[in-house]
């Protein structure tokens, strides 16, 4: 466990050294400032649009961050040749995989917390507020979502270079996000192989929409039932474990060649 935590700590330090998080934070702040500065037909004291667009931006930023951090960890070690001294140490491949995933997940989760805090501050400045419990639930579920995305990114990056892995992760997560919630009504118009294909996709891809509490948060609805939140988190944990296992299966016997990932 110590070895996994050490690897995760290294990912954290790398994140502090690189500028990704700062760039995304500044972009988010700039967008929020622009939204606040809009002259909405001369109407002030309205916050719903700020909450909704702000949360969407926070989600997009954390998604970009989760994919970019998770997909570059393993290919970077191979490209720089540091995978050889790393594996020469008493560290197993599964520990490398878990350490990299944990680091990427914690970094993305912490950055998301900062994004939420910035948004909450802006909303308060505008005279609005978020429900505390719903906000905590939203962040918790968002954390579950980031667990799945980073696990998928790590799984793809075990066999692909960083660019290919990140493109595949973006496409897979976006498709899961946009298409899966519509499958129950798309099935009504599909026939034969198309219908079977939709059903396969429906059960195979992760249901990321379950982790989205934004509407409940924006429009002041009461918190979701704790049991439901718990079930969704368990589902997130399961999907994360599935992707990490797939990644491990792809990584355990991988042969490393110097310069192969250049």
């Amino acid at each position: 466990m110590i070895r996994i935590l050490t690897l995760a700590w290294l990912v954290w330090l790398e994140m502090l050294r690189r500028k990704d998080v700062y760039v995304l934070f500044i972009l988010l702040a700039a967008f929020l400032a622009t939204l606040m500065a809009l002259n909405l037909f001369g109407l002030g004291q309205v916050v719903s649009y700020l909450k909704e667009i702000g949360l969407l931006l926070a989600w997009v930023c954390s998604w970009i961050l989760a994919v970019s951090i998770s997909t570059r960890q393993l290919p970077q070690e191979e490209r720089q040749g540091t995978i050889f001294p790393l594996l020469a140490k008493p560290v197993s491949r599964v520990e490398v995989l878990l350490g990299k995933w944990l680091g990427a997940w914690i970094v993305a989760g912490a950055a998301t917390l900062v994004f939420y805090a910035l948004l909450a501050l802006v909303v308060v400045m505008r005279g609005g507020a978020f429900g505390g419990v719903v906000l905590a639930q939203a962040w918790l579920l968002h954390l579950g979502l980031l667990g799945i995305i980073t696990a998928l990114g790590i799984a793809f990056s075990t066999r692909l270079n960083a660019d290919a892995a990140s493109v595949l992760t973006y496409v897979a997560t976006l498709a899961a996000w946009l298409v899966l919630p519509r499958v129950p009504d798309l099935v009504l118009t599909a026939r034969g192989a198309g219908q079977t294909g939709l059903m396969v996709i429906y059960y195979a891809l992760p249901h990321l929409e379950l982790f989205d509490l934004r509407h409940r948060l924006v429009y002041g609805w009461p918190p979701a039932s704790s049991a439901v939140v718990l079930w969704i988190l368990v589902y997130g944990l399961l999907m994360t474990a599935v992707f990490l296992t797939l990644g491990w299966l792809a990584y355990r016997n991988k042969r490393f060649t110097r310069g192969a990932m250049l």
């Binding site: 919630p181 129950p184 249901h207 379950l210 509407h215 409940r216 979701a224 039932s225 439901v228 969704i232």
Partner: peptide, 18 residues
């Protein structure tokens, strides 16, 4: 939206959506 089927996922989705 009219749905062709309900599943564990749709039920969970309905439980968290307003």
């Amino acid at each position: 939206r009219r749905q062709a089927f309900t599943s564990w996922f749709t039920r969970l989705g309905q439980a968290i959506e307003p």
